[in-house]
Design a protein around this nucleic acid. Structure first.
Lengths: 343, 343
DNA sequence: TTGAAAGCGCTAACAT
DNA sequence: ATGTTAGCGCTTTCAA
């Protein structure tokens, strides 16, 4: 049978509250001698404190719930690992599920999560339109529980916590501007799904840069992808058909797809086609022609989202919700070139 | 304030056990009318059942603990997702942490996990030598708790559960044999860390095939890698220096590194060098020269490990521990070629 | 410095 | 078909 606090108490000839106190880190009213003895007996009996009971009694838990999307992308798995690392270091545990874009099961899964008396919640799935009804209801429930929430993007949560944001519009702007400044005028782009907020933001940045350079936005140069490599492969021949001389890929992974397809068609990067990515996953820098891209500090963002959440949880006073905005940084490597004026 | 079962009971004018029963799926003694009313009121009041309390009272939980290693590798993140998918579908939750190879924090992290009254545990970290003392102690504790454990490999657990294994030795044997049968005699290999059991198994398979073909094992043809792409890049020039005409990479990721390096040195695959991988990650099949590899059914393995664990949890009777062994399948694509007899 | 006792929100006999 | 009651293992006043 499992050994409980009661067994320790009996064995030590003290009360259970004494044992409980001995384990808590609060300034000890327990005499050092008693405490040492209790700890020793507990070790000998292989006592495992029961977090569930502690949680129920104290109404405080060390569980942090999280939802995230498909991990088969270094960008996302890096985020997961950065978050997890902070959380486990601080003595919390991550209760985590991967939710697909269509939010299938989502309602059910999240309800199960928040039924677990969480200390906080991390919403690491991207914002999509139209807002899923399930997800709206869930957000309302979380709100009502006054659960601290850390979110990647602004989902409208009002409870204490943090929104960690990245300026994707500026990322799109900078990437496109660089290509424009290099003399390109027919700049294609490979987007993510259009119902992602982060996709629309990048697209707005792209349009903004074009406008600024007096170039009309041309829908034919926009290939709708899905952030997976395959999209990039498919996009290449299409965009070449549209006589693009440069392409802004909304993430690095699709840029790799462009590379692959390019090799197959004997299209040289950057001689025949300039390519810009976005994310800066580690792989980008090891290609034969290193990818120029926009750096997204995903590890840093993961660390901060976890740290801020834990800070919110542990600060007793009611803190106001925070927003932290990260700025893009252009990383120019070998995959783009200046276009010669065709005089 | 949070609404509890008591509030619902008061509101409905029934006892709390009636409410509890109304929520449980057991054949209902509760009249349909009462039940409907309770459910309706609960919905209206936005009642969230408290899993923690339920767990404490029933001594049954829906939490499954898991430890796994670095997710920034499609092979591992696929495993995670396959497991998670089954678990969330069956109404369980995954409490998961990534543990580094050196097991730093491991002891602490796992103790926190098992203090959470788990229904079961998934040990998805690879077996390493020498067995870490922490990890041995932890295994003893888990054993003593009679917690069902599903493990990737045989860690010596005796509690009900399952060991999901893959015959890596045969994988190494088949891959090497294929290269030998193609006329190669100087076959290099890029291994993983030598303290991984799965590394040693592949190496034994490699040696076995050589022996069978009467070729002496040559340590100089063995490059010790770490399963990351970079190892593959570094291995290429070394193995070429050893006049290898073929290389067996212990995983696909390092084979990609070989590809990269080869491109840089203008080494053609398979004309100048035959390459075999292991794992069959999705990426393998989209390279310009598709990678010949050994298929490891990681999704299937993930699904089965989760399903078997849940089966063990839900089967009341004491079931014996099971072992499921998956067999390798050679996937011959374009990256290997027959060596002409140099007559 | 320690012990007694109430109670966290729920389940599960056992009564009715 | 429904209610009563005694816990689950722990925390936390309050009293000694």
């Amino acid at each position: 049978m499992k050994v409980t606090i009661k067994d320790i108490a009996r064995e030590c000839g003290v009360s259970i509250s004494t044992v409980s106190l001995a384990f808590s880190d609060k300034e000890s009213r327990i005499s050092p001698k008693t405490k040492a003895h209790i700890l020793e007996v507990a070790r000998r009996m292989n006592y495992q404190p029961n977090r569930v009971a502690a949680n129920l009694a104290s109404k405080q838990s060390k569980w942090i719930g999280m939802i995230i999307n498909d991990l088969r992308n270094t960008h996302i798995s890096s985020l997961f690992m950065a978050i997890d690392h902070v959380i486990q270091t601080k003595g919390y545990s991550l209760i985590c599920h991967v939710l697909s874009d269509d939010f299938a099961n989502g309602h059910e899964v999240i309800r199960n999560l928040i039924a677990s008396n969480l200390a906080g919640f991390i919403w690491a799935k991207p914002y999509t339109y139209p807002e899923n009804e399930d997800s709206i209801e869930i957000q309302k429930i979380i709100e009502q529980m006054e659960l601290p929430v850390a979110a990647m993007d602004d989902f409208g949560f009002k409870t204490p916590g943090v929104n960690v944001m990245f300026d994707y519009q500026k990322a799109g702007y900078l990437a496109t501007k660089h290509l424009l400044d290099s003399g390109h005028t027919r700049i294609g782009c490979v987007t993510g799904p259009m119902n992602y907020k982060v996709t629309q933001e990048r697209l707005r940045g792209y349009q903004e840069a074009l406008r600024e350079h007096g170039i009309e936005y041309n829908e034919n140069l926009v290939y709708t992808g899905n952030y997976a490599m395959k999209s990039g492969r498919e996009a290449l021949s299409y965009l070449l058909g549209q006589r693009a001389t440069a392409v802004f890929s909304f993430n690095d992974e699709m840029a790799f797809g462009l590379y692959q397809s390019a090799r197959q068609y004997r299209i040289k990067i950057p001689e025949d086609l300039s390519v810009m990515g976005c994310d800066n996953v580690p792989f980008s820098n090891v290609l034969e022609v290193p990818l120029s891209t926009v750096h997204v500090p995903i590890d840093e963002m993961g660390r901060i989202i976890a740290q801020e959440l834990i800070k919110t949880i542990e600060e007793k006073g009611n803190v106001k919700r925070k927003t932290i905005l990260y700025q893009p940084k252009l990383l120019l490597r070998g995959s783009t070139r200046k276009l010669q004026a065709e005089a």
